[in-house]
Design a protein around this nucleic acid. Sequence first.
DNA 1: CTGTATCCTGGATGATACTG
DNA 2: CAGTATCATCCAGGATACAG
Lengths: 130, 130
Amino acid sequence: MTPLTQADLTKPCPTRELLDRIGDAWSVLVVLNLQMGPCRFNQLRRQVGQISQRMLTVTLRHLERDGIVSRTVFPTNPPQVQYALTPLGQSLAEVVVVLHRWATANQGSVDAARKLFDEPVGAGIQIRAA
Amino acid sequence: MTPLTQADLTKPCPTRELLDRIGDAWSVLVVLNLQMGPCRFNQLRRQVGQISQRMLTVTLRHLERDGIVSRTVFPTNPPQVQYALTPLGQSLAEVVVVLHRWATANQGSVDAARKLFDEPVGAGIQIRAA
DNA sequence: CTGTATCCTGGATGATACTG
DNA sequence: CAGTATCATCCAGGATACAG
């Protein structure tokens, strides 16, 4: 409801800015995971899954810089670093969770659409068949 | 509220799939623009702004394949092609709009955080100053 | 454990030219 | 107008090695 107007998009186009942050796939995943509670580096690494160490570091620095996550170092031995969502990050997380929910709920629809698209003509009549 | 559980993320991780679609910056922008109503190719091109013709084509095909947008050709001369959100696309659009709203509302906070981050020490004491 | 520093490659993207 | 095809580029991201 209440669709946006052209003006909403044209302004200084904050959407472009937005996408530089959350358009990045890893950021979304990190936020989703942190949204479950504070987390240490390697723990987060394992949870997120396929992310490389480098990318996790880069992503976290990015999010930290944007005030989305906080980084707390406990001077223990070995060192512990805890990452958590800031209040701003939590507000973002809520939105991202909605996105995640949509994806989960509509995964079937998308997959079905793809199948249809990839097999435009049924019953053996394949236009682009080799 | 109602944070996700680890299980929600680990499943077959639909989030990864999700990100392949909307994690792409152009897709988000196209959906946001189409959400304002059906649109023709070049019209959309102008509205989205910096997108190249190729990328708009690729993005639209992607969204079409995923059942997010529909493509209707009017056999006029010159040809007219109308792109519009499908019902599925509209449901996605609603979520994306929320994202857009968040970005607009919190742009200031993020910018402020960045400023702080980029100038960690005030009053002329610059650790990394050249 | 929690990173930083380098090197290197593939795929995403833009530019350009052509077509129905 | 609405694309497709092709080529060149560039940089995000992985792999690896090293460090506090």
